[in-house]
Amino acid sequence: MSERRLKILSIAHPAVEAAAGRLRYHPFLGRPDLDVHLLAPRRWHQFGRTIEADPPGDPGVTMHILPIWFGRGGPMSWYLHIYPGMRRLIREIEPDVIHLWEEPWSFVALQAKVLKGDAALMLEVDQNILKRLPPPFESIRRHVLRNTDHILSRSPDATAVVRACGYAGTVGEVGYGVDFATFGPRQAAQRTPGLRLGYVGRLVVEKGLDDALDALARAPADVTLAIMGEGPHEASLRRKIAELRLDGRVSLRGWSSPAGVADFIRSLDALILLTRTTAVVKEQFGRVIIEAQSCGVPVIGSTCGAIPAVTADGGWIVPEQDPPALAALIERLRDDPALLDAAADAGRANVARRFTYDAVAGQLADGWISAFRNRRPA
Rank of each mutant, 00 (worst) to 15 (best):
H37Q: 07
A53K: 05
R87G: 01
R42V: 00
H26A: 14
R43C: 14
S2V: 09
R4C: 01
P59L: 11
H45W: 15
W69L: 13
R72M: 11
L23C: 02
I90Q: 03
V16N: 10
I93T: 08
P84S: 10
H64L: 04
E103Q: 15
E92I: 07
S2Y: 02
A112Y: 03
E52A: 15
D54C: 05
H45I: 12
G85A: 11
A15P: 01
P59D: 12
V36D: 04
G74D: 11
G85Y: 06
S10T: 10
M86S: 00
L23R: 15
D96K: 00
D35A: 13
E102L: 03
F28V: 06
R43G: 05
F28W: 14
S77V: 01
M76K: 07
H64Y: 11
I93E: 10
R87P: 00
G74A: 11
I82W: 05
L100G: 10
A53H: 02
H26I: 13
G48N: 05
V61T: 14
L110R: 14
L100R: 05
L66Y: 10
R31N: 11
Q46Y: 09
S2M: 10
M76S: 07
P75Y: 08
E102F: 00
Q111C: 04
A53P: 00
G30F: 03
H81P: 01
W44H: 13
S2D: 13
L110H: 06
I82A: 08
P27N: 04
T62E: 10
H81N: 05
G30H: 08
L38K: 06
V36P: 08
P14D: 11
